[in-house]
């Protein structure tokens, strides 16, 4: 398999609290990898390392390695802004910027120096189509993004991330506040997108992981308990803890 993201003995401490304990994990290119585990299991911490949003936290100590395409991304010399253009993020809560639908999506491309109206038009349309939102908003692109429903806002955030033309998309519990129909639309979009992107989906919903992901990783208290193809994890887990979690016995 084609490794896109690799972690080696990755350990993260917030003060005295170990959020990740020596995690070794290979994330495969052009697939959807699901991260599951109860609150505080370290899955979101791992996400925030990959896009280096962890830089905004205080008192963090990191050991071990994390690389994308074999290239270290934890070092101090890494171009963090450039990294975040390669690694797009969709957060748990839909967070549209207070401007129009069009301007939300054009935000990233404009930062890259794309300012030509026709280029931006193309990117906006393409991104919205990929995020399965185009048909719902194509006639009101210049309406405030805050006027959309929660589910639409979250797909807008996905489209905004796609407009960066990233290599990797991180979704941190993107459907936690959404209704089943919106969730299905997001999953539908992801299934199409994995052809071109490497996707990591964090979810508290094990059913969603089972439905949407090719690979699944189960985290518990900062440790990667089990990582395998989704099918194997859900039909025949090696570790008892994983089985218990999937069956809803704890977590």
């Amino acid at each position: 398999m084609n490794v896109k993201i690799r972690t080696e003995k990755l350990t993260v401490r917030f003060g005295n609290n170990e959020a990740l304990k020596g995690v070794d994990l290979d994330v495969c290119k052009n697939s959807i990898t699901g991260f599951m585990g109860p609150a505080g299991s370290g899955k979101s911490t791992l996400i925030s390392l990959i896009n280096r949003m962890i830089d905004f936290e205080d008192g963090v100590r990191i050991e071990g390695g994390l690389s994308i395409d074999g290239e270290d991304i934890l070092g101090t010399s890494v171009d963090v802004v450039g990294l975040r253009r390669r690694v797009g993020t969709v957060f748990a809560v839909p967070l549209p910027l207070p401007r129009s639908i069009f301007e939300n999506i054009a935000y990233g491309p404009r930062l890259k120096g794309i300012n030509k109206k026709s280029d931006l038009d193309d990117i906006v349309e393409e991104s919205l189509k990929k995020a399965v939102l185009w048909s719902e908003v194509c006639d009101r692109l210049h309406v405030s993004a805050l006027k959309l429903s929660g589910g639409q806002q979250q797909r807008l955030c996905l489209a905004r991330t796609l407009a960066l033309r990233p290599e990797i998309i991180l979704l941190d519990e993107p459907c936690s506040g959404l209704d089943p129909i919106s969730t299905a639309k997001i999953e539908e979009a992801l299934n199409e997108l994995k052809k071109d992107y490497t996707i990591i989906l964090v979810s508290n919903n094990t059913k969603q992981i089972a439905r949407a992901c090719d690979f699944a990783a189960f985290f518990y208290m900062g440790t990667l308990v089990e990582f395998d193809q989704t099918e194997k994890i859900f039909t025949n887990p090696r570790v008892k803890q994983t089985e218990d979690y999937i069956q809803g016995k704890f977590g």
Binding site: N51, M53, F56, V81, G82, R84, R85, G88, T89, F91, V93, L95, L97, P98, Y107, G108, L111, K112, R160, T161, L164
Partner: peptide, 24 residues
């Protein structure tokens, strides 16, 4: 959160300040 989003979209601190923080 608006700052976080802006950074996640590849904005520098200054770009975030000028394009997101100051307009708000």
């Amino acid at each position: 959160n608006l700052r976080i989003v802006s950074h996640s979209l590849g904005a520098t601190k200054w770009e975030t300040t000028v394009k997101v923080v100051l307009p708000s």
